[in-house]
């Protein structure tokens, strides 16, 4: 069964169409990425999926349960980290987690055991009784994550979970997402960080101006939009542009202390560059070829945003 099956989601705010006929299907067990520039409609879509915002049209099924018809049953299957939502700052980390667990109807013993385990896992054990008010942003986000996974949700939905976090907190979040996925949760996450989506997701939807412009695996997306390739090279002494054109290497541009040579055949270009260096008595300090990047695909898809 599909973890998420949303069809024809549409939302207008006044006359502005924030989300227009968006359909998403997420098979059980996968990590699904939702990518798009600022204001593309990611959060609006997520809010409709999680039953927080009433759509103008369209329907959402979570493991077959319609969010509109039976919101409580559908929400019981989800753990959500909203983009603009935090935990209660007047409660301690532990109290927040236990309260959330109560909303999910967990038994007292399970609740306490699991809270303990998760606090440990997220490195919050020694601060568990401090009020969240006194926490840093990264720690708050960890509490937020703890609350979202306390009931081992079959579906985990995270709206920009790593924005504003340092490297360690970011890694912790990513590891937690991976681990939840290994333990059986389906994951839907939005992010601006293309590398993150690349590293985590098995499928990505790119959304722009409220409509989905592509849904592919990251590798496929990269290949499709692999248009500009180049070779980057630097020598032990300064060279100038005519040197390249003289050896039939067009499209060479200075790039910092290096040269960038745009080409559609990296293989031939590298060989000519090596010949050139040999002939001129230059030694090569560094050489690299570009790989197709997801960023390229993203920019191409959402150009003009």
């Amino acid at each position: 069964m599909d973890a998420v099956r949303a069809t024809g989601l549409t939302k207008k705010f006044g006359t502005f169409s924030a989300v227009d006929n968006v359909s998403i299907t997420i098979p059980e067990g996968s990590i699904f990425g939702f990518l798009g520039p600022n204001g593309a409609g990611k959060t609006t879509t997520i809010r409709m999926l999680t039953g927080v915002l009433v759509p103008d049209a369209g329907s959402v099924r979570i493991f077959g349960i319609d969010v509109h018809d039976d919101p409580i049953a559908a929400k019981l299957k989800m753990g959500v980290i909203p983009e603009n939502g935090t935990v209660y700052s007047d409660l301690s980390a532990l109290q927040n987690i236990l309260l959330t667990a109560k909303f999910f109807g967990m038994e007292r013993v399970t609740r306490e055991e699991r809270a303990c385990e998760i606090l440990e896992r997220l490195g919050l054990s020694d601060r568990q009784d401090d009020l969240v008010r006194t926490f840093s942003k990264g720690m708050r986000q960890r509490v937020s994550i703890a609350c979202a996974i306390i009931h081992a949700p079959p579906l985990l939905i995270l709206d920009e979970p790593t924005t504003g976090l340092d490297v360690y907190s970011r890694r912790l979040v990513i590891d937690t997402v991976r681990r939840m996925n290994r333990e059986g949760s389906t994951v839907l996450l939005t992010t601006h960080n293309i590398e993150e989506a690349n590293a985590l997701c098995s499928r990505i939807s790119v959304i722009n101006h409220g409509t989905i412009v592509a849904t592919e695996s990251p590798e496929k997306l990269k290949k499709t939009f692999d248009t500009s390739r180049y070779v980057e090279i630097s020598f032990n002494r300064e060279v100038d542009a005519p040197l390249f054109s003289a050896s039939c290497i067009p499209n060479a541009e200075p790039y910092g202390d290096k040269w960038r040579v745009y080409t559609d055949d990296p293989d031939r270009t590298v060989k000519s560059l090596v010949t050139l260096a040999d002939r001129e008595g230059l030694s090569i300090v560094s050489i690299a070829t570009s790989n197709p990047s997801l960023e390229e695909a993203f920019v191409t898809l959402t150009a003009g945003a």
Binding site: T50, P71, G85, Y88
Partner: peptide, 14 residues
Amino acid sequence: REKTYERLLSLPVI
């Protein structure tokens, strides 16, 4: 204002 409402709404409540 404290932005806890959004989270509350996404819990199993109506």
